[in-house]
């Protein structure tokens, strides 16, 4: 079943096409990847899907809804959650409060309730605390709940972003370079975590990633971008044999 439909979207920045005529389709329980050299437009594509930026042309459909012009908080409410390439946690909040943020709209109590600290607020606060702690425990962060994100190691902060993205129980998870800055052991751990999440929560995942081992091992479908355009799409086996990809991308990687 199709969950996300990206229909020839384009985005320009000051005359430069960051994304041009990009299309993709994502199934409801699929893990796919968008790969490509630096500056190929992968992160911009994520920004467009999650509504952080709006498309110049084209359309986006998530489930039954047209999300092309929606602001990012509305898209999140429909079930799209994401992480950021350059970790963006709320440094002023504790680890557990960081996780709670992404569940706020679902709490459903008013400012008036909060001013008066009514029993309803206290009940809901207990509930959200439990949920957030479960989420942290799920990703092995429970012991750090009261700390500030800045005091965590880089790998743990990446995991905290993942916890925050999972908190609202999304249907689609966008992971922007989840392996960046992690060591080999941490990457292996991340891979099993993603697969575990995918099985356990039965959700759809798109990763933007440079780390080929991760992409080839966990993804069933790969979209390759270069200069904002899609140059290939297929299973990992098809992509490794694709001439265009080898030229534009893998050859490029060989030099690095």
């Amino acid at each position: 079943m199709e969950l996300l439909r990206v229909d020839s979207i384009s985005k320009n920045f000051g005359g430069v096409a960051a994304v041009a005529d990009f299309s993709m389709s994502q199934g409801a329980a699929e893990i796919s990847a968008i790969i490509g050299p630096n500056g190929a437009g992968k992160t911009t594509t994520f920004n467009l899907i999650s509504g952080v930026q709006t498309v110049d042309k084209g359309s986006l459909r998530f489930g039954q809804s047209d999300i092309t012009r929606l602001p990012s908080h509305r898209i999140q409410a429909l079930g799209v959650s994401r992480t950021f390439q350059n970790i963006r946690l709320f440094d002023g909040l504790s680890v557990v409060d960081n996780v709670k943020i992404s569940y706020t709209p679902q709490l459903g109590y008013s400012v008036l309730d909060e001013l008066l600290s009514t029993p309803r607020v206290r009940r809901k606060e207990r509930l959200i605390e439990e949920r957030a702690m479960e989420q942290l425990a799920f990703l092995g962060l429970a012991e750090h709940a009261k700390k500030k994100p800045k005091s965590l190691s880089y790998g743990l902060r990446r995991r905290l972003e993942l916890a925050r993205a999972l908190m609202p129980e999304p249907r689609l998870l966008l992971l922007d370079e989840p392996a960046a800055g992690l060591n080999a052991a941490e990457i292996r751990e991340l891979m099993s975590t993603i697969e575990h999440i995918h099985r356990e929560k039965n959700l759809s995942v798109i990763v933007v990633e440079h780390h080929m081992e991760l992409v080839m091992n966990i993804c069933t479908r790969i979209h390759v971008m270069d200069f904002g355009r899609k140059i290939a799409e297929g299973t990992p086996q098809e992509i490794t044999r694709n001439e265009k990809v080898l030229q534009a991308y893998l050859g490029d990687m060989g030099d690095v």
Binding site: S50, F90, K100, T104, E125
Partner: peptide, 26 residues
């Protein structure tokens, strides 16, 4: 009271990173 609950948390999230807050549903 406001500082302790969702309202205050949301304020701090906006203060620290507006874009991330919005992407997290705020």
């Amino acid at each position: 009271n406001l500082k302790k609950t969702a309202f205050g948390r949301t304020c701090i999230a906006i203060r620290d990173d507006e874009l991330a807050a919005q992407a997290m549903g705020v």
